[in-house]
Measured scan of single mutants.
Amino acid sequence: MLDDRARMEAAKKEKVEQILAEFQLQEEDLKKVMRRMQKEMDRGLRLETHEEASVKMLPTYVRSTPEGSEVGDFLSLDLGGTNFRVMLVKVGEGEEGQWSVKTKHQMYSIPEDAMTGTAEMLFDYISECISDFLDKHQMKHKKLPLGFTFSFPVRHEDIDKGILLNWTKGFKASGAEGNNVVGLLRDAIKRRGDFEMDVVAMVNDTVATMISCYYEDHQCEVGMIVGTGCNACYMEEMQNVELVEGDEGRMCVNTEWGAFGDSGELDEFLLEYDRLVDESSANPGQQLYEKLIGGKYMGELVRLVLLRLVDENLLFHGEASEQLRTRGAFETRFVSQVESDTGDRKQIYNILSTLGLRPSTTDCDIVRRACESVSTRAAHMCSAGLAGVINRMRESRSEDVMRITVGVDGSVYKLHPSFKERFHASVRRLTPSCEITFIESEEGSGRGAALVSAVACKKACMLGQ
């Protein structure tokens, strides 16, 4: 009897593995994704193909990295998701002549009506938060230079001027797309009239992360975010950046690689679950690469896999709870928690219980395998993109072996128990001629924006502006 049951459990697990095998990517698959990513990057950089390229390769006008001589107080704003952060950054000489960066910050959550109302409502709310922060720190009387981390696709015309191309991540505030974001912020500050600010720089969160990590390690020339969304930036040779005049030196390019796949480059790798996630998203047909990796989508992918296993009578005796059938019910943090389970399955059992399920031991094991399959594919897909960037940098610099540091931020990278190990191992397999160091950014977005502002202020002083 026991043997029969054991055989049935083994057969069930084997069927589960057959279904989950769809998520496995072979090294040849990853090399294919990497080569296609490089081709799209090239198209994004070139003037004649930029418009139709899915990977936009947006110039950021960040050319210099901090040298350690900029000092002063800077205000930093960070808008990239449902939370908005205001930070005071003091850049100065530390002990023994070292450079020191001290920060104080406060988080504000953005109400739904500000995210989806008008641009005026959104930026009025942001300036209200700045006003509140300055009151708390008794700094209303000071006109501070301000660095703005704005983590949406922007076409820069200068370091302090950028046109919002399109909202992502659930934002829909009308009247912002096609307009200068810094102008919208300046107008809102003017409307309030109770404080003055000098907006000197606007950067993407990947750029802010790279600059913040450069402060720790001067070989950091790539910034990457794996959180709600997924994106990367890197220092490109100016001669390859056709959208900006000049051939000397390097400029940081914001790849906006989340949109890779929007022209069909990933079609052969998309599964039924991916198509369902895409169809029910706020932007169907867009940001397809990001939807395979980002935390906004990972939990939902797992939920759809679990429903398939229920329908195949391989999980929960073929019956799903009402909660499990509800879109968004299986949160991405559950994926991390399930994979963090120590082996007694308590954590998995508790999560499934909150979803109205009474799982068996085998159910718990199957749910864990589903989570591992989805998150491992995410790590491997992400590795193909980064390997594409790094191999490109090595080739354009004609280096036999390139040493490089990548600064990384984002909740999936930082909080998932195995993502970074799987990701690092896969990147290294795909970049055999590179020695890569990964560092995690601390308060990256805010500190990085302030350091970019410090560079901009120093330049302005040198130019006598």
Rank of each mutant, 00 (worst) to 15 (best):
I130V: 09
E14Y: 12
L352Q: 00
E256K: 05
V71L: 07
D187N: 08
E339K: 00
G80P: 02
L47T: 10
E399H: 11
K172G: 10
R7D: 13
V16F: 15
E128R: 07
S64M: 11
E9K: 15
P432Y: 07
P59H: 06
F148V: 14
E196F: 09
T405G: 14
R275K: 12
D262C: 12
Q98L: 07
Y215C: 11
G223T: 01
R368C: 11
D42T: 07
L357I: 10
Q287N: 15
C371T: 05
K90S: 08
Y108V: 04
E272W: 03
R192A: 11
A173L: 07
L292K: 06
Y273L: 05
H424S: 10
I439D: 05
L301W: 00
D132H: 07
V244G: 06
A232K: 00
P66C: 09
E237L: 09
K12P: 06
V181N: 08
W99P: 08
G285M: 03
R394G: 09
H105K: 15
V71G: 09
E157L: 11
G328I: 01
R155T: 08
F330A: 01
F438T: 00
R46C: 09
R43N: 11
S263W: 02
Q18V: 08
D73C: 01
G464Y: 07
A379N: 03
M37W: 04
K39Y: 15
H105F: 10
V86W: 03
L315T: 02
G448M: 12
C230D: 02
T376N: 08
E245M: 14
V200Q: 06
M393E: 01
P111K: 15
M238I: 15
Y215M: 11
A188Q: 03
S411H: 11
S281E: 10
Y273H: 05
T431Q: 07
C434T: 07
T437D: 14
Y234G: 02
V62E: 03
D274S: 00
C213S: 11
E67V: 08
T209P: 02
V406H: 00
N166V: 05
R186Y: 07
A387V: 03
P145Q: 02
F74S: 06
A456G: 09
F150V: 14
A425S: 07
C233H: 02
C220T: 06
P59G: 01
A387E: 00
P417S: 09
G464T: 03
A456K: 14
N313R: 09
S100N: 10
K143G: 10
Q465I: 08
Q38Y: 05
E67I: 09
T149G: 08
I348T: 10
F334V: 04
S281H: 01
S69M: 15
H218N: 05
I225W: 13
F123V: 10
C233V: 07
R155C: 06
A449L: 06
G407A: 10
K102R: 08
A454P: 03
S280H: 10
Q323R: 09
A370S: 04
R397P: 01
S100K: 11
G285F: 01
A329K: 05
K161V: 09
M202Y: 13
N240R: 07
V305Y: 01
R392L: 05
E256F: 07
E399A: 12
E395R: 08
H137I: 04
I439R: 10
K104G: 07
R345P: 09
A384E: 01
F438M: 03
C252H: 00
R155P: 04
R403G: 07
R250V: 06
E221Q: 14
L47R: 10
E312P: 01
F133R: 01
R428Y: 09
E236N: 00
V101L: 15
S127R: 03
A450C: 09
S281P: 02
A282T: 15
S360V: 08
G81Q: 04
L47E: 13
R422D: 11
E245Q: 10
G295E: 10
G295F: 14
A329D: 13
E242D: 14
G258R: 02
C434H: 01
L352D: 00
I293W: 00
G92L: 10
W167L: 12
E372A: 08
R377C: 00
E440L: 12
A387G: 06
E22K: 09
Q347G: 14
L271P: 00
E399N: 07
E93P: 15
D409A: 10
D78P: 01
I351R: 06
R85N: 15
E95S: 13
R63T: 10
N391T: 08
E440D: 03
H218D: 10
R429A: 14
R397Y: 07
S418K: 09
A53E: 01
E14L: 09
F438S: 01
S280L: 12
M381N: 01
A173E: 11
L270T: 15
K346L: 08
S433K: 09
N391A: 13
F438W: 11
D344Y: 02
M121H: 04
D363I: 00
T118P: 07
A176R: 06
E248Y: 08
E319Q: 07
R46I: 04
L270M: 12
C252I: 13
I159E: 14
Q138Y: 05
L79Q: 09
I404C: 14
V154Q: 06
L315R: 00
A11S: 08
N350S: 06
A378Y: 00
G318P: 15
A449M: 09
Y125N: 04
L20V: 06
G343D: 05
L352P: 00
L185I: 11
L165H: 15
M37A: 05
L266Y: 00
M202S: 11
E265I: 05
G356K: 03
G80R: 04
Y214H: 14
K90Q: 12
Y289K: 05
S76V: 12
T362Q: 08
R325T: 13
S54R: 05
C364K: 00
K291D: 03
Q98Y: 10
S411C: 14
A460Y: 11
F423C: 14
K143M: 08
E120M: 03
K420C: 08
T332F: 13
L58Q: 14
D365P: 00
H141P: 11
K420A: 14
A232I: 08
N166S: 10
C461G: 15
R250S: 03
L415R: 07
I159M: 08
H416Q: 05
A450I: 05
S441W: 03
T405K: 09
R392S: 02
A329C: 12
Q18F: 15
W99D: 06
S433H: 11
T228R: 13
E442L: 08
A259P: 09
L45N: 02
K31F: 11
V406S: 00
R333L: 07
D344K: 04
D205C: 04
L451V: 10
D278G: 01
E236Y: 01
E17F: 14
G162I: 09
I404T: 12
L184H: 15
D160R: 10
D198E: 14
K296N: 14
I404N: 00
G178P: 07
S100H: 10
G464M: 06
L355G: 00
S353D: 08
V367A: 14
E128S: 06
E196Q: 07
N313E: 14
D341R: 07
T103E: 08
A282L: 05
L306P: 01
C129Q: 01
K296T: 13
Q465M: 08
D160T: 04
E442W: 10
E120H: 05
T168S: 11
D3P: 07
K136P: 00
R369T: 10
Q465G: 08
E221R: 02
R85T: 14
F84E: 09
K12S: 14
T206S: 08
M87V: 12
D73W: 01
D3M: 03
M41H: 00
T326W: 05
T354D: 08
G227H: 07
R155I: 12
I390C: 13
R369I: 03
L276E: 15
I348H: 01
Q323S: 07
R394P: 00
D3I: 02
T60W: 02
M393P: 00
Q465L: 13
L314M: 13
A460Q: 12
V401N: 07
E196T: 09
N313L: 09
L266Q: 03
R369W: 07
V452S: 03
F269A: 02
A378P: 01
V389W: 01
M34V: 05
F330D: 00
Y297W: 15
L266T: 01
G385E: 08
L122D: 04
E221L: 05
L20R: 00
D341Q: 01
G264E: 03
S418R: 15
E177F: 05
M402P: 09
D217Q: 01
A460K: 05
E331F: 10
K39N: 14
C457R: 13
Q38P: 01
A329H: 02
C252R: 00
L25K: 03
V244H: 05
G343I: 04
